[in-house]
Amino acid sequence: MFEFCADPSILPTGQWFACYLTSGTHMAFYRSFLVVMLLLAITAPAALAMGILGALALRSDFAPVNLLGRGYVNLVRGVPDIVFFLFVPIALGQGIEWVLHQINCPDWDQPIRQGNDFIVCREAKMPPVGASAWTRNVYGFSMAIIAFALVFGAFVANTLYGAMRAVPQAQIETAESYGMTRAQAFRRIVLPQMWVFALPGLSNIWQILVKSTPLLFLLGIQDAVFWARELGGAKTSLYTYPHPDWRVWYFMVLLIFYLFLTWGSERSFGWLTRRLSRGQATAEGERLRRGAA
């Protein structure tokens, strides 16, 4: 990064740290925070979409759909989600390979599970044999996103279902008496108004989502935890930047990052609650109305 970094062993402390903290591996460490943010940015809408689908299934009058929704929500909520985070990527990966195997190699005569091995033909491997490291990373990352979206979708579905029922029934009846169909009433009355009721629950789920991102590490993704362990461990003089065990400092940085993230989201949700409460038939909305007048 800097020109004086050619031989770090003779540098004074200040310059040594300047070089150390801008080394290639440290840049990867900083980028891994972006990976966490990226995961949040993709997972949150995905979970919200899953949640809306789940909530609609819970609301449905059609028994099989309703049952499917209830099964999904209760199963995910009733089992520790760490189990899901580890289960879904493996199970899904094996599922995809199994389907591809059935399509690509119909004349394969050996069983897929032989003892403790899961064997599919070469064409069915996912990611494909000889794929680049980048493709592998993206594949692993998408598996993680699917696992997160599935788990948090169930939490969101439950919250949104409650929020939909909290919209005053009289308003829906009024809408229907104006001649709107059920779908129209849902789109025009329930959907815009449910958010203020859902917000405390959603804010809670968001905080839990933020705090569960370090589990990416368990799925073999090179996230902030991975780099903190990697960089913090004691380095002998074989390395360019020898240092004793500094893991505690790296994890302190991580802790501060997460504290900042949760603190920031708490503030933003506070602002959003006030913003959404405008014109609502709730205590907060009433207070805002009085304040404005």
Partner: peptide, 21 residues
């Protein structure tokens, strides 16, 4: 705030690496 605002997973790492020092 400290213990509710940060992930337990990281807390384990942090305290473990502090304890071994």
């Amino acid at each position: 705030f400290f213990f509710r605002g940060s992930p337990l997973f990281i807390q384990f790492f942090f305290f473990y690496s502090a304890f071994i020092l």
